[in-house]
């Protein structure tokens, strides 16, 4: 049993080193340590499932060990920049003021075509319009357009607009969601009154959303329509 714990620790270190060696391109949107956790947990969980000769405790103890390691490592990463850098690497600025940093591109082992493809994914089709393009530690590309290329905001246009409201689901499939009511600072009565005004009973509502300004959206159940 202890051997499972020891082997799990060794495997964790080995896989994390391998993923770090592979670099950003292979890891998609996850942080390297998150990917390691995902890979290990899915694999370990599958082993006792596939091989019924193996005690399930082997898998459970290994997964618990991984979880503990992950939490401890994430706490360490919060406290230490060095640990964070070791685990996740650091972001790389690939474009500055519309100019591609070829050295940096080589360092992260990306071709210019890869970069162009990633830019297109961000709806950017002209490199000259980019102020900064940063390859994040998770492998995604963040793009900041030059000021003159950025779309105008409400602030830029000096248009008066009320504060943005977040609509919360208050009824789902006929059931009133107490947590949403609490978040909105209202009670069940407010919701039933709103529904009564439209001649609907809560049990006949498929979805009802409400924002803090009192704006409601109601979708009736299909059998009622």
């Amino acid at each position: 049993m202890f051997i499972t714990v020891y082997r799990t620790i060794i495997l964790y270190i080995v896989v994390i080193i391998s993923i770090r060696l592979m670099g950003k391109r292979q890891i998609g949107d996850m942080q390297p340590s998150e990917l390691v956790i995902t890979l290990l947990i899915s694999e370990i969980a599958a082993m006792p499932l596939q091989d019924t000769d193996q005690p399930i405790l082997f898998g459970v103890s290994a997964i618990f060990t991984i979880v503990v390691i992950e939490i401890l490592v994430s706490i360490l990463a919060l406290k230490s920049f060095f640990v964070r850098k070791m685990l996740s690497g650091k972001s790389a600025i690939l474009i500055k003021d519309g100019i591609i940093d070829q050295k940096e591109l080589k360092k992260v082992r990306m071709t210019v075509l890869d970069l162009v493809e990633m830019l297109r994914g961000q709806q950017v089709f002209d490199i000259a319009t980019v102020s900064f393009a940063v390859l994040e530690t998770g492998g995604s590309l963040s793009v900041l357009l030059k000021s003159k290329e950025q779309p105008a905001t409400v602030g830029d246009l000096k248009v008066q607009k009320g504060p943005a409201e977040l609509p919360l689901p208050v009824i789902s499939d006929g059931k009133i969601l107490a947590e949403s009511l609490k978040a909105l600072g209202i009670d069940e009565g407010t919701v039933t009154v709103k529904l009564a005004k439209r001649g609907i009973k809560p049990k006949n509502v498929f979805l009802m959303t409400l924002d803090s300004a009192g704006k409601a959206e109601i979708v009736k159940k299909e059998s009622i329509l």
């Binding site: 405790l57 459970v60 618990f64």
Partner: peptide, 22 residues
């Protein structure tokens, strides 16, 4: 809270391991 919980979990795992070995 998570750290405490995870340490408790690890403690349980190690106890089970110890008992298994014994």
């Amino acid at each position: 809270k998570r750290l405490v919980l995870s340490l408790v979990l690890l403690g349980v795992v190690l106890l089970v391991c110890y008992y298994g070995v014994s």
